[in-house]
Design a binder for these strands. Structure first.
Length: 359
DNA sequence: AAGATAATCAACCGCCTTCAG
DNA sequence: ACTGAAGGCGGTTGATTATCT
């Protein structure tokens, strides 16, 4: 026969918030005896609680190695990247953040980081640009036109302008995808400055630009006359972002690294309107992440450079083979602090040399 | 100042996997 | 090999606190 029931004495066990005395009892018991059998622990510790409840309380709040307080930029960065890779695998994400619990990370994600990504125009579930609101993403050429008045690039507009930096990154990613699959990724022609205002979002899937942006859009002809100060003034994201100038040299000299492709199947599954959160598999997600965030393909495992299948228009394009190894490779890549490149510092939002960091 | 609304987060619920019997 | 409890996990709830009107 199997074991006896865990909480068959559940009738009458206390629920709800823990009292300090209960915490003391649980801590004292575990300090003295350790834990191993949560089922029998409450009785032995003199607690009228379910074993599960004791475990949760200990794991999430009483453990001595728990780290409380604000999440650092570095922690945010790790969470974003791991969430992009793993999805809502909070315990796995927590294992990369010493002292943080899955519950805390989950709460933090749902209350803070989801909003942040939405404000940046990124779908927090898929980590893709929200292509059903592409009008909110600027065309990089227009930004550059605004920044190069008098024929000279004015890098000052990028300083302390985190929203603009976000948009530049998004735009670059978008252009990459356009190059890879021009049919799947529509052009971005419209621009609405008011959409830069972080606002509470309506239901994501029924997002309607007009519903959030009551102001009239500028005429098409006005696009090239955008005053950069508009963006600066409208930016309310005052935290994070490495300096754009740190990454500008290579970009300015057209020294972008080779693009990273994903399979057509991956891209098809990621097309707007054809994929849902549950339909995006880990492998697809890994492929998209490699395309979005990475230029450095892990040297081992299933990922390899395959020139014969690469886009000849974009030397250096690499292709990954699908497989669960990709996830492991990518995890190793995330842990590899020695990797460094234009893309890493540009798209990797946690450049350790830049502080503060967005994530 | 008071009520309404939004944000936060501790804790519960129920499902899934592992493993003891 | 099978059964079923224990442990683990992710989704959700609801109480509390903060902010807005």
């Amino acid at each position: 026969m199997g074991r006896s029931p865990c909480c068959d004495q559940d009738k009458g066990v206390k629920k709800g918030p823990w009292m300090p005395e209960e915490d003391d009892k649980l801590t004292a018991y575990i300090d003295k005896n350790g834990y191993g059998n949560w089922r029998s622990l409450p009785k032995l510790a003199g607690l009228n609680r379910c074993g599960k409840s004791c475990r949760l309380r200990w794991m999430n709040y009483l453990r001595p190695d728990i780290r409380r307080g604000e999440f650092s930029d570095e922690e945010e960065s790790t969470i974003v990247k791991l969430h992009a890779l793993l999805g809502n695998k909070w315990s796995k994400i927590a294992s990369h953040l010493p002292g943080r619990t899955d519950n805390e990370i989950k709460n933090y994600w749902n209350t803070h980081m989801r909003k942040k990504l939405l404000q940046m125009g990124i779908d927090p579930t898929t980590h893709e640009p929200r292509t059903n609101d592409l009008s909110s993403i600027l065309d990089v050429s227009q930004i550059l036109a605004a920044a190069t008045s008098n024929g000279q690039f004015n890098s000052n507009i990028f300083n302390n302008n985190t929203a603009l930096q976000d948009l530049l990154k998004l735009q670059l990613i978008h252009k990459m995808l356009q190059i890879i699959t021009p049919k799947a990724i529509p052009n971005i022609n419209g621009f609405n400055a008011s959409s830069l205002n972080p606002k509470p979002e309506p239901v994501l899937n029924s997002f309607n630009t007009n519903s959030v942006n009551p102001k009239p859009e500028p005429a098409a002809g006005e696009l090239n006359a955008i005053d950069p100060q508009v963006f600066i003034n409208q930016s309310t994201n005052e935290d994070f972002m490495p300096s754009f100038e740190d990454n500008w040299d290579g970009f300015e000299n057209n020294q972008l690294p080779g693009l990273v492709t994903v399979s057509q199947e991956d891209l098809n599954s990621a097309k707007p309107g054809t994929s849902t959160a549950t339909e995006v598999t880990d492998q697809t997600r890994a492929g998209m992440i490699l395309g979005y965030y990475g230029d450095q393909i892990p040297s081992s495992g299933s990922v390899s450079v395959t020139p014969e299948t690469s886009d000849m228009n974009h030397p250096g394009t690499t292709q990954h083979s699908s497989g669960s190894d990709v996830l492991e490779d990518w995890e190793r890549f995330l842990d590899d602090e020695t990797s460094d490149s234009c893309w890493k510092s540009f798209l990797d939002l946690t450049s350790p040399t830049s502080s503060p960091s967005p994530w």
